[in-house]
Computed example of a mutant assay.
Amino acid sequence: MFLDILRQFWTSTGFSALTIKEVVMIGIASGLLYLAIKKGYEPYLLIPIAFGMLLTNLPLGGLMAEPVKEIVKDPVTGQMVYKTKEVGGLLYYLYQGTKLGIYPPIIFLCVGAMTDFGPLIANPRSLLLGAAAQFGIFFTFIGAKFLGFTGPEAASIGIIGGADGPTALYLTTRLAPHLLGAIAVAAYSYMALVPIIQPPIMRLLTTEQERKVKMQQLRPVSKKEKIIFPIVVATFSILLLPSSAPLLGMLMFGNLIRESGVVERLSNTAQNALSNIITIFLGLTVGATAKADSFIDITTIKIIVLGLIAFSIGTAAGVLFGKIMYKVSGGKVNPLIGAAGVSAVPMAARVVQKVGQEENPSNFLLMHAMGPNVAGVIGSAIAAGVLLMFFGS
């Protein structure tokens, strides 16, 4: 009798259902938590994602369980209707904001409210660096097609090269939702690892003399220019590429409420409370899509490798275009700022500042790097819009 009770208790625990794959996923989640907490690699992103991954791979928890429905006869109308027999898990319902493409545009709104487009307005040439850094997206798209992925799948994988998590999520939910877990983890992991991945590429492609270049201070940008900018960009870009409206529209709206100066409460909410809430929900639910059964396979490995290639090529393309601008300007442009063309804001710009100061302690490249950095945000949204236009249903 006692043994039967113990046996029954054991089978009711998650330990009895734990598989090797789930143990591996728990180990991966723990590794990401270590990088976030101990090493400080983008903890605001990695901690929710890693903990969501941990929760979804603990058996019998049911946090991502779908609701169970049955067909019953309505006693009033006599028609057969669906009735919820069992409600879904907590994270399943929170995940609908990701699945339906709601969270990523809201994140873009928050990013817009936190972003100063002044450096880009002061130096419009930064747009070219932001555009060049998107080369990794299309190069990796071709590589993914070569490896046997479908067009929509290849587009979703390629967008990792933009180093923009919300954009990657938005495009993947539209084109290849079955790959969301792997693409989300790859995209956000590489965003968090920007300080590790980018510096070796930047040093490899530039000379010591180029890295030491000091750039002239940017011109002051008027408030009128900052107010007009989001209106003009939103209008022109969305008319040109309507599929970019959810991302670019929210990005520019967020920036407008920041720069208008008359809705401070809205701006503060977007920059702080709303951003933090959506980051928690998005991170937890994105991590929760990385279930052991669907995550640990050869497809995931291919996606993670292709994602690294995409991000690396995007960084390299930005730096190489920066070298072209260095030559054309007669040595006045530091090519390192090209690395900030990927849209990991403001991480990539900080990396440029750090690498530049290592070569020349009196060098301050942060504001110069912010131009390509915010241009990269716009560029990745436009690239997503182009891919969605071609491969969206």
Rank of each mutant, 00 (worst) to 15 (best):
residue 219 R to P: 02
residue 219 R to D: 15
residue 219 R to I: 14
residue 220 P to K: 10
residue 220 P to V: 08
residue 220 P to L: 03
residue 221 V to K: 05
residue 221 V to H: 08
residue 221 V to C: 06
residue 221 V to P: 03
residue 222 S to H: 13
residue 223 K to R: 11
residue 223 K to Y: 05
residue 224 K to L: 15
residue 225 E to I: 11
residue 225 E to W: 04
residue 225 E to S: 14
residue 225 E to A: 15
residue 226 K to D: 13
residue 227 I to F: 07
residue 227 I to E: 12
residue 227 I to W: 00
residue 228 I to H: 05
residue 228 I to P: 06
residue 228 I to C: 03
residue 228 I to D: 05
residue 228 I to Q: 02
residue 229 F to Q: 09
residue 229 F to R: 09
residue 231 I to E: 08
residue 231 I to R: 05
residue 231 I to G: 09
residue 231 I to M: 09
residue 232 V to W: 06
residue 232 V to Y: 02
residue 232 V to E: 01
residue 232 V to D: 02
residue 233 V to K: 11
residue 233 V to I: 15
residue 233 V to Y: 01
residue 233 V to L: 12
residue 234 A to H: 06
residue 234 A to Q: 00
residue 234 A to C: 13
residue 235 T to E: 03
residue 236 F to M: 12
residue 237 S to A: 15
residue 237 S to T: 15
residue 238 I to Q: 07
residue 238 I to M: 02
residue 238 I to A: 02
residue 239 L to N: 12
residue 239 L to H: 10
residue 239 L to R: 12
residue 239 L to M: 13
residue 239 L to E: 10
residue 239 L to G: 07
residue 239 L to A: 13
residue 239 L to Y: 14
residue 240 L to M: 14
residue 240 L to G: 04
residue 240 L to P: 00
residue 241 L to R: 08
residue 241 L to G: 07
residue 241 L to K: 01
residue 241 L to P: 05
residue 242 P to A: 09
residue 243 S to M: 07
residue 243 S to D: 06
residue 243 S to C: 00
residue 244 S to H: 00
residue 244 S to L: 05
residue 244 S to V: 15
residue 245 A to I: 05
residue 245 A to T: 10
residue 245 A to Q: 05
residue 245 A to S: 14
residue 246 P to Y: 08
residue 246 P to L: 02
residue 246 P to T: 06
residue 247 L to M: 12
residue 248 L to M: 10
residue 248 L to F: 03
residue 248 L to C: 04
residue 249 G to C: 07
residue 249 G to A: 07
residue 249 G to M: 08
residue 250 M to K: 08
residue 250 M to P: 02
residue 250 M to F: 13
residue 250 M to H: 09
residue 250 M to I: 03
residue 251 L to W: 09
residue 251 L to V: 04
residue 251 L to A: 03
residue 251 L to M: 09
residue 252 M to S: 04
residue 252 M to I: 10
residue 252 M to W: 04
residue 252 M to V: 10
residue 252 M to A: 00
residue 253 F to L: 15
residue 253 F to Q: 03
residue 253 F to C: 11
residue 253 F to I: 15
residue 253 F to K: 01
residue 253 F to E: 01
residue 254 G to D: 11
residue 254 G to L: 01
residue 254 G to T: 07
residue 254 G to S: 08
residue 254 G to Y: 02
residue 255 N to W: 04
residue 255 N to S: 14
residue 256 L to S: 08
residue 256 L to F: 15
residue 257 I to N: 02
residue 257 I to E: 02
residue 257 I to H: 07
residue 258 R to W: 00
residue 259 E to D: 14
residue 259 E to A: 09
residue 260 S to H: 07
residue 260 S to K: 01
residue 260 S to C: 10
residue 260 S to F: 07
residue 260 S to V: 09
